[in-house]
Nucleic acid binder design. Structure first.
Length: 264
DNA sequence: ATGCCTCAGCTCCTGAGA
C-alpha cells in the first residue's frame, strides 16, 4: 500500500502534473495541500476520467486540502474537515478512513494537513501557528485512541532538526527552524508517532521544498518540511519512505516535492 | 535587497508563501 503527500501550490495550475504523477505513481492515497480552489471549482471530472476520486476541502485564493483515492477501491469514510473543537476560517485539514487495498478490514485513518506557515516569530501569524499546533496535538491524542492505525502527512512547515535545513547556521531561529516549532513537532512524536522518512537511510541534504528564487533547487538549497508521521501501531508495517524530486524538475513546478510512504 | 520567484485576484499592483 502506498500513500503520498504533495503541496501543489495551486491545483488549477498543477492539475496536468498531478494527473501525470498519479499515472506514474498509482498510490492508494494522495494528500494535496494548497489546492487554492473552492469545492465547487475542484476538478472532480478530470480526476474521475483518469480513474480517481477526491474528497476536497478548499477555499478561494489560499490553503485548501484534498485526499485523492482510486475509483477502483471503496470510497473513504468518516470524513472530517479541519480540527474538531478549533475554530478556523482556513481550510487546512482533511481526514478520512481508507481501506487497505488487499485487506479491506484493515482500515487506516489518514490525516492530510497544511500546517500554518507562521511568517516569523513574534508575529500574529506565528501565534496562530502555535495555537493551531496545540489544537492539532489535543485532537490527535483523542483520534489516536479511536484510530490506532493513523498516518499524519502533509506540509508541516517545520523542520525536525538541522539535517532538514540546507543552511542550519544562517537559518537558525528563523521560521520553520525555531525551537518552539520543533518542540511542537516533538510533542506530536510524543503522542506515539514516528517520522517515517528517518526510519531509513537517506542521502544527505534530502529536502522537500526549495525556494523558487536564486536557483535554489539546482543548488539544492532546500528544507525538509513535508512529513509523514506514522502511529506506533503502523510503524512495523512501514517498508519505505522517500521524497520524489522528479516533479520539481518539471516546467512550472510546485516549489514542493511529493513524499511517498510504502506500507505492507 | 521588507529582494530575488510564483500564484490569485476587486489583476498592470499587492499579499502571501517559506
Amino acid at each position: 500500500m502506498k500513500l503520498a503527500t504533495w503541496n501543489v501550490n495551486s491545483l488549477s495550475v498543477r492539475l496536468p502534473q498531478v494527473l501525470d504523477w498519479l499515472a506514474a505513481n498509482p498510490v492508494d492515497v494522495l494528500a494535496l495541500q494548497e489546492t487554492k480552489t473552492t469545492d465547487d471549482k475542484f476538478p472532480h471530472a478530470a480526476l474521475n476520467e483518469a480513474g480517481w476520486r477526491a474528497a476536497a476541502f478548499g477555499q478561494k485564493t489560499y490553503n485548501g486540502v484534498a485526499l485523492i483515492t482510486p475509483l477502483g477501491q471503496p470510497a473513504p469514510t468518516d470524513e472530517v474537515r479541519n480540527i474538531p473543537g478549533f475554530t478556523d476560517e482556513l481550510a487546512r485539514v482533511i481526514t478520512a478512513t481508507v481501506p487497505h487495498p488487499e485487506r479491506p478490514s484493515d482500515t487506516l485513518r489518514v490525516v492530510g494537513a497544511y500546517f500554518p506557515n507562521g511568517q516569523a516569530p513574534g508575529t500574529d501569524k506565528f501565534e496562530y501557528k502555535m495555537s493551531w499546533l496545540r489544537a492539532l496535538r489535543d485532537w490527535l491524542r483523542e483520534e489516536l485512541a479511536f484510530h490506532p492505525r493513523l498516518v499524519l502527512m502533509g506540509d508541516y512547515n517545520i523542520t525536525f532538526d538541522d539535517l532538514d535545513v540546507w543552511d542550519p547556521v544562517g537559518l537558525a531561529g528563523t521560521i520553520h527552524c525555531t525551537e518552539e516549532e520543533r518542540g511542537h513537532l516533538k510533542a506530536l512524536v510524543g503522542l506515539g508517532m514516528t517520522d517515517a522518512f528517518r526510519l531509513f537511510e537517506q542521502t544527505e541534504k534530502s529536502y522537500s521544498w526549495w525556494d523558487y528564487r536564486e536557483f535554489a533547487f539546482r543548488r539544492n538549497r532546500g528544507l525538509r518540511i513535508d512529513h509523514v508521521l506514522v502511529s506506533d501501531a503502523l510503524k512495523p508495517q512501514v517498508q519505505a519512505c522517500a521524497i520524489d524530486r522528479l516533479p520539481r524538475k518539471n516546467e512550472r513546478p510546485s516549489d514542493h516535492a511529493p513524499v511517498v510512504l510504502t506500507l505492507a
